[in-house]
């Protein structure tokens, strides 16, 4: 029998100025999340990541990259592109939070209500999503994830090393604290 070979995947696409970053620029630990706004596991990890950033302020920063599995989640791609449209208006994280807090309301009608709630023009953003103005950006994130060994969502990298543990707050705190010490 060939022995199964386990190689820990590493992030191959470095964090750049084009990324969406939340938290201190000089934080010693960078968590890169590959996520899908319609994925229930990402939705479950979302409040834990939020709390992680609060409890380890200054130690950890979060980068969010898109990894929509559109064949399983029909609204994942449009949600990701809507987040980019919001990002172009300086409101990426507001939209990111709204999407994860309204995962059962990602259809176009509810999404446009969300956009309006956040003080952005729903018709303009709807048109950008419709003509896939931000599709290339979403695709770039996805491809970089694929090449880095992302095999599902959420996938996290802590300082470029894939996190193969759990997503509970306790697991995340322990992983970040360990990464901060190395």
């Amino acid at each position: 029998m060939t022995t199964p070979l386990q190689v820990t995947a590493r992030l191959r696409t470095p964090v750049t100025g084009a990324d969406h970053v939340r938290g201190a620029d000089d934080a010693p630990v960078t968590v890169v999340e590959y996520g899908d706004f319609q994925c229930q596991y990402c939705g479950a990890a979302y409040p834990n990541l939020h709390e992680l950033l609060r409890q380890r302020e200054g130690t950890v920063r979060l980068v969010y990259r898109h990894f929509p599995i559109a064949n399983v989640h029909p609204y994942a791609e449009s949600a990701a592109e809507a987040a980019e449209a919001a990002g172009a208006r300086g409101k990426f994280w507001e939209m990111h939070d709204w999407l994860f807090e309204h995962q059962d309301q990602l259809d176009p009608v509810h999404l446009s209500l969300g956009v309006e709630q956040l003080g952005m023009p729903p018709d303009e953003i709807g048109a950008e999503v419709e003509r896939q103005a931000h599709a290339d950006r979403v695709r770039r994130d996805f491809v970089g994830g694929i090449r880095s060994g992302v095999n599902g969502t959420p996938t996290l990298f802590l300082n470029d090393v894939r996190h193969d543990g759990g997503y509970s707050l306790a697991d995340l705190l322990a992983a970040v604290d360990a990464a901060a010490e190395t």
């Binding site: 060939t2 995947a9 090449r147």
Partner: peptide
Amino acid sequence: SHVSPPDVNPGADGIL
């Protein structure tokens, strides 16, 4: 060629 443990999704990076 590559074999993974049954419960591990090997992703697509090795293929690419």
